[in-house]
Design a protein around this nucleic acid. Sequence first.
DNA 1: GGGTTTATCGGTCACCTGTATTATGTCAAC
DNA 2: GTTGACATAATACAGGTGACCGATAAACCC
Lengths: 198, 198
Amino acid sequence: MPKQVDHRERREAIARALWRVVDLRGVQHLSLREIAREAGISHGQLQHYFASRQALLTFAMDFAAEQTTQRISRSLEQLGDPPHPRDVLRLTLTEMLPLHADARATSRMNAAYVLEALHDEEVLARTRDAMAKGRAQMEGLIRRAIADGHIDSTRDPATETDLLLALTGFATLIELRVIDPQDVLKAVDQHLDRLFDQ
Amino acid sequence: MPKQVDHRERREAIARALWRVVDLRGVQHLSLREIAREAGISHGQLQHYFASRQALLTFAMDFAAEQTTQRISRSLEQLGDPPHPRDVLRLTLTEMLPLHADARATSRMNAAYVLEALHDEEVLARTRDAMAKGRAQMEGLIRRAIADGHIDSTRDPATETDLLLALTGFATLIELRVIDPQDVLKAVDQHLDRLFDQ
DNA sequence: GGGTTTATCGGTCACCTGTATTATGTCAAC
DNA sequence: GTTGACATAATACAGGTGACCGATAAACCC
C-alpha cells in the first residue's frame, strides 16, 4: 500500500468538508462529488473512506456533536469552580445557536439532519436519543440549582428545562436575520434572570 | 377550448399534494413527478400549471401562510370580543407548532423553505419580510397589552416578543418526540402566565 | 521475493432530476 | 367548417446522483 494513512483523521477531514458544503452551498447541494471536490480528493477516494452516503452523514453528525461538546467543555473550564449554574446554562444555550462560524455550521447540519430524521426511523432514534440525553442533563442541572437555592423551589424543573430548550428556536430567527445576535443574547439573559432569583 | 378550468383551484390542489409529499415522504423526495403522482395528474399537466419548480414552491409556501392565517383568524373569532391578548398570543403560538395535521404539514414546509432561504437571496428576502411582519404584529399586540395594563409596564416589548417567537423552537422538539404536546402546552402556558400579571 | 493488503483513481451503471418539445384532444368563436 | 386558444399527455434531453467495479501502484508480511 502507499504510506499508511490515519483513517480517523482522514474521515474527520472529509466530515469538515461536508460541513463547509452545507454551510456555504446548502444541504440541497450535498452530494458525494461536491464533498470530494471540497475536500480536494477524488470521488473514488471518498468512497474508500465511507461505504455509503448514509455512513458519511452519520459520521459527520456524530463528529459535529462531539466537537460542540468539546467546545462547551473548554469554555466551562474557564468558569469558576464550581461554575454557577446560570453560567453553565447560558454557555450551553449560546453554543447551540449559530452565533459564530463553527456553531453556525453545526447548527445547519443539525437542521438538515432533523429533516432527514422525520422520515428515517433509524436516524430518528439516534437523534431522539441524543436530544433526550441532553435534555436529561439540563434537567439534572436545574434540579441541583434548585436544591442549592439558586432557583426558587416552586419552579417545576421539567417545565423550566423545556422552556430553555425551546429557546433554540432563536437559531432560525438568527439565520434569517429577523433578530440580531445582540437582541438574542439580551432575551436569553432576560429569561435566565427570571429563572434565577436575582 | 376544453372545459374551462378554475386555474386557481387547480393550483391549490397541486399545492396541497406538495404538502402531502413533504409531510409523508420528506423534503428530499420533493420532485415534480412525485407531486404529480400524489395529485393524480400527469407530469406534463403539472407543468402546464406551474412554469417551473421554483414557481410551484413559492406558490405552495404563500398558500400555506395564507391558510395558517385563516386558521388563526377563524379561531380568533371564537374568542371574546375584544379577545384577551393572552389568548391571542397562545393561539398564534400553538397554531405555529406541529400540534395537528394541518399545522404539521405547514411547519415542515416552513422548515424546508428556511433551509432553501439560507442560500437563495430572493427566497431569503421573502421569508425574512414575512417573518419580520409577523414579529411586528406581535410586538404591537404586546405594546397594547402593556398600555391596557395586562402586562407589567417594566417589561420590554421587543425582548418579550423575541422570547415568544423563540418558543417556536418547540416545533423541532415535538417532531422528534423529545417533548410531548401536553408538556409543550404546559410550558407555553407557564411562560404566558409569567408574562401577564397573574 | 512473492503474496497480500491498502490507497487512489477513473469509469460505468441505472436511475432520477427539471426543463423543453411535440402531439393529440377539446371546445368556443368566427 | 375552419381557426385558434387551451388542456392533457407522452417523450426526449442534458445533467447530476449514489453505488459499484477494475486497474494500478505502493507498502507491508512471511
